[in-house]
């Protein structure tokens, strides 16, 4: 079981840094159209924030925010969001993952812009959920965890 860290320096620092980490992950995701970064990097940064939470405040605190079930749901939901964004392309007779076929009142270019954001969000959820689950399983030694 990962316990809460004893040092007040560690917990105070973590309390300060975790929200900033998550905010940065969100920025990297939504600003991927304009700057380096995107769904994958955002997912890893998001997971890093939660891993820091587990290391500083213990497994119980992490489970209060994201437990294993939620992580797995996040990971599967991310993959489904990615695939789902591609489906309208097939239905309308275009091509799988052709975002301009999204059934929205948008110009084709704007629809593709939105499609990129949707699939990147899916990648973020898939990567973050997978990494958190893997880390917890790898680092936690408790036999009945």
């Amino acid at each position: 079981m990962i316990e809460r860290h004893e040092s007040v320096v560690v917990t105070t620092f973590a309390r300060l840094v975790i929200p900033l980490t998550h905010l940065f992950a969100l920025y990297v995701l939504v600003h991927g159209h304009e700057s380096p970064g995107g769904g994958f990097q955002a997912g890893v940064i998001l997971a890093a924030g939660y891993i820091l939470m587990a290391l500083a405040f213990g497994r119980e605190q992490l489970d209060r925010h994201v437990n294993e079930r939620l992580c797995l749901a996040l990971a599967s939901g991310g993959v489904l969001l990615y695939v789902g964004t591609g489906v309208p392309g097939i239905v309308t007779g275009s091509a799988f993952l052709d975002y301009s076929a999204l059934p929205l009142p948008l110009s084709p270019a704007r629809a593709r812009w939105l499609g990129i954001l949707l699939v990147e969000t899916g990648v973020t959820a898939a990567v973050a959920g997978t990494l958190i689950v893997l880390f917890v399983r790898l680092a936690d030694r408790d036999p009945d965890a």
Binding site: H33, E34, G38, P108, I116, V119
Partner: peptide
């Protein structure tokens, strides 16, 4: 830029 309104071509190539 014209087809996806995305200035970062890397993002457009990777995700579109």
């Amino acid at each position: 830029l014209e087809e996806t309104l995305t200035p970062n071509a890397v993002t457009a190539v990777v995700a579109d």
